[in-house]
Structure formats: C-alpha cells, structure tokens
Amino acid sequence: MVTAGAARPRPRRRRAAFIAGPHVLLVPAAIALAAVSVYPLAYGIVASLRQYRYGLDMGFAGADNYLNVLQDATFLTALGTTAKYVVLCVLIETLLGLGLALLVNRQLVGTGLWRIGIILPMTVAPVVVGVMWRLIYASDIGIADPVLGLLGVHGVHVLGGESSAFLGVVLLDVWEWTPLMFLILLAGLQTIPQEPLEAAVMDGASALRVFFDHVLPMLRPVLFVAIVLRTIDALGTFDQVYVLTRGGPGVSTQLFSIYAYNTAFLFTQEGRAMAMVVLLLAAVLVLAGIAIRLVRLGPGTR
C-alpha cells in the first residue's frame, strides 16, 4: 500500500492500487451480505423440500410441502387477509399522506414543529406501537370503547369482534405509516418548480385543476416509489399484529407472516412454513423488480 509519506512518486504502484482498491473493498461486505441472504435463502429452499417434525428433519419430501400449502384453506385465507390489509392500508396512507403533505407544503407558523409531530409515530418500534394501541383498545382500561360509545356505537369491543379487530389493526397501520408517505411525498412536492404552477393560477386555473394538471404528473415518480416501498413493507407486517391480536379473534387478523411464524415456531413444521415463504418471495421479487426499475440507481444519476 502506498503511504502518504512516500517521497518518490511511484506511478505504476499507484495505478495498481487504484485499480485493485475499489474492488477489494467490496469483498468483505459482499461475503457478509451473501451470508445473510443467499445462504439462508438457499438453505430455506432446500428446507422447503424436506419434512420437519418437532424441529427434526424427517427426510426428503419433494413438492409435498408446496402441494400441502396450496390446498391449505387457512393459508389461502391468510393470503386474502394480507391482500385486503395491504391494499386498504396503502390506499388510505397514500391519500392521507398526500393530503397532509399538500397542507404542510406552504408558509406555516412553525413549519418544522408540524412535521415533527406528524412523523413521531413511525420512529418508535413496531412492538411499542402494538403496546400503545393495546392500551387504547383494551376492553377494561382502554379508551376506544368509550369513544365509540360517545359516537353511538355501544357494546363493541374493538379487539373482540372479527371485522372490528381487522379495522383496528388497519387503523394502527395507518397511524404508524402515514408519516412515511407524508415525508416522501412532501420531499417530492418540494422539488416541483413553482413557476408553472403560478402561471397556471394567473391564467385562472382552479386549485384542483392545478393539482391534477401540473402537480400530480410531476409527483408521479415519487408517488410510485413510495407506494412500492410501502407495499413491500406492508406485505411483511408482523410485529404490531403479533402484539395486538396474535392473528385473532379467529383468523380475522391472521396475516401471512403470522401464519408462517405459527407454522414454523408453534407447529414446528419448518419445511411447510418455508414453502409458504418461498411463494411469498416470488411475489416480493416481482414487486422489488418494479421498485428497482423505478428507484434511480447509483451515484451521479441524481
């Protein structure tokens, strides 16, 4: 390695270091990344072809796990619940986040403070978010049931009924992740040049027209990135639901990840759980492929 103290310039060595340098620095990180992604995934795919009982490997099972999973009504229900959950959450969060971003994107008294207040929910651990909402929804000490009573809905325990528990979990997700949508979309709005908008207003366009004709088209790339990122994260939702309902009552809030977790760690059928996970992986890869096309890659391209 050439050091700072080298008095005589040694161009050839320096060139060698320059060419070899960057690639060499990538190696340790590449090994670490492979160790936590390629290796476990390969291991998992092999495991999905084997039969596990009580955590013990009982031998090769071929496609049994996959066939089993695809015929499992509970699994299909969990997929449906997850799809409903993801669509509902992402939709509400996008609309609310966009609305809030439009509200904040102007001269306001104490701009920074509004922002901090809004983003606080997404900073805390999902487990803690689960605790917070457990305290709100609790039927004996919570505040949700009395509030519903004030609104004329009596005798409902949020986490006691199937549809109310599902909506309760969605509300939690909206509370926690609308801030992310808000922040990304606000950042997007702030990069939009103001002149064309002002010109349109001068020409007498209404606020709605300006939004749909000028703001929305320019915001579209950022909007896509935000939606894809949030969709992928929402597909894997686990912590809050585990703390809040463990998937109940019944299977009303049993998302994909909760069912896969139960299969692997409660029923100790790791092979079958891996088969579920591999199916999800395929879905995520498709989404991630879309995301990567949208996210502009690398330095110098911004």
Binding site: S37, G44, S257, L280, A288
Partner: peptide, 10 residues
C-alpha cells in the same frame, strides 16, 4: 427489501 419473515426460518 426482503421481509424479515422470509429470513427468520432459515
């Protein structure tokens, strides 16, 4: 982007 549930079993 891999959800944690994909990785925890392996």
């Amino acid at each position: 982007m891999l959800p944690a549930i994909l990785l925890v079993i392996p």
